[in-house]
Design a protein around this nucleic acid. Sequence first.
RNA 1: AACCCCGUGGUGUAAUGGUAGCACAACUGGUUUUGGUCCAGUUAGCCUAGGUUCGAGUCCUGGCGGGGUUGCCA
Length: 574
Amino acid sequence: MSDNSTANNISSGTENAPVDFIRAIVNEDIRSGKYKPEEIRTRFPPEPNGYLHIGHAKAICIDFGIAAEYGGKCYLRMDDTNPGKEDIEYVQAIEEDLRWLGFAWDGPTRYASDYFQQMYDYAVDMIKLGLAYVDEQSAEEIRQNRGSLTEPGKPSPWRERSMAESLDLFERMRQGEFPNGSKVLRAKIDMNSPNVHMRDPVMYRILHMEHHRSGNQWCIYPMYDWAHGLEDSIEGITHSFCTLEFEIHRPLYEWFLEPLPVHRPRQIEFSRLNLTYTVMSKRKLMRLVAEKKVSGWDDPRMPTLCGLRRRGYTPEAIRSFVQQLGITKFSGVTEVALLENCLREDLNKNADRYMAVLNPLKVSISNYPEGQIEWLEALNNPEKPELGSRKIPFGREIYIEQDDFREVAPRKYYRLSPGAEVRLRWAYFLTCQEVKKDEQGNITELVCTYDPETRGGSAPDGRRVRGTIHWVEASHAVAAELRLYDRLFKCENPDDCEEGQDYMANLNADSLTTLRDCKLEPALLELPPESRVQFERVGYFCSDRHEHKPGEKAVFNRTVPLRDSWAKIEKKHN
RNA sequence: AACCCCGUGGUGUAAUGGUAGCACAACUGGUUUUGGUCCAGUUAGCCUAGGUUCGAGUCCUGGCGGGGUUGCCA
């Protein structure tokens, strides 16, 4: 994987970042001489049973970011120990999302399934050590005998069977002599432990099932607690980062490794990311897809990385967001506004500006020569004049935004109204002379005059106008489909709902508005898919990855609107 | 209910035991050929009660509050 050899030096922006508790631990391990900086090994260990989302991005930035900062290595390992749920489709999607986010793992993609033989051998050792036994209770019996949070468990009748018998049975489990669910290998720990995970946890279960990588080579599969620490150990991971729900598993993680002659990584837990107006669990996201509430895993309203990508989010914005989050053990909820701020910050600097009219209103300029088109110069990005300019056509008939005209202008309304003068961005001053309507009284067209002296947008006499509006010349306008996305849920916490309902009841019915009669300046049609741009005064948009066809069909997704202080003013006055 | 973890402005987070700071959000004002951006400013915080200490957000104990755990999932 030569393209993976580049260092992950895009960093998570840590130069001036405060030292969080995880980095403090790593620093201490280096200071004490336990590891040299370049020996630091981390891993990102997804289970290939779903798509990566913004919550994973936090883990990814921590895993890859910390390894990179110390000059260590970070591996990508598929935690594929449950063939019933996993699939190659997800492996490829995970790899693609990771690359898109900007991270390169060290070496090839690794698989827990590649370690099945070693794990099996160590399990045999555990039996020989008297630390594991084959149990023949049913799943139900095991559950019952585990006790509860308040009551101790009861030992299995098979708990004290001989080592030789367990060895024989375990070997035969592997050979496929027994049906699913008939036997398991269990660790012999403590049925009275207040930590229920220590009450003789299952290490192996029988699953006669084809695995997406190992095929039919195995019919017993290791459980997470037994497998994960070994995976980390085999790979020489020094610091194994995971989320808080695994905290209570840490004693087990350590218990399994302790008697074995193996390297012992340190597991460190941090709080997972929660976002307002968002659900994050795979199960909940899966249901949105299955019940067709969204168009798929990469629907631009989904918090999946592929969804955010299609929406127009940049990898830089996501990384910057994670860096600003910090790392703690406190389970809170982050406002999605912070993410959006990171996005706008990046896009403001890097997105070229264009003009697009979402809801067109036709304007005829009565004193502009009929049939004449002139090409005016417009800056691509006022934030970066060095990015140059482009030419946009201007003519007698143009479209402006319906919102930019009011027959009766409210106080502080700086846009067009009868008799009022505004500036057409990059073009001329315009004054509204006449309003045309149909029989129902709907405004169909405006007749205006322009001031030829104001070409480019400034008046030689020094007169000023308060408002500047965007526009698109009619004969060159490109028809486009624009998709305006809003938050998927209508309340901050989608799980906060009435008795008998669930998060599905909190879906925002207006999370998608499709506009099919939009008018774009011609250059936009030529942009390749996934071009991120700003439609001036409107918002940031991204040409759709799948449906936008350069030269043929313009389809843009609204990534995030521009801040709209006029909307605030108007709301306040109503 | 038992065990584990965690409590700093509205939100996310800083602060060798020594002046509680940053970002986002909200609100003011300024600049502006995007009602964008940018700039300046305002509001607002150590869960609580004791203890240790010259001095506690930080250390100890209790209380309260929140999260996690009771799959042959990860």
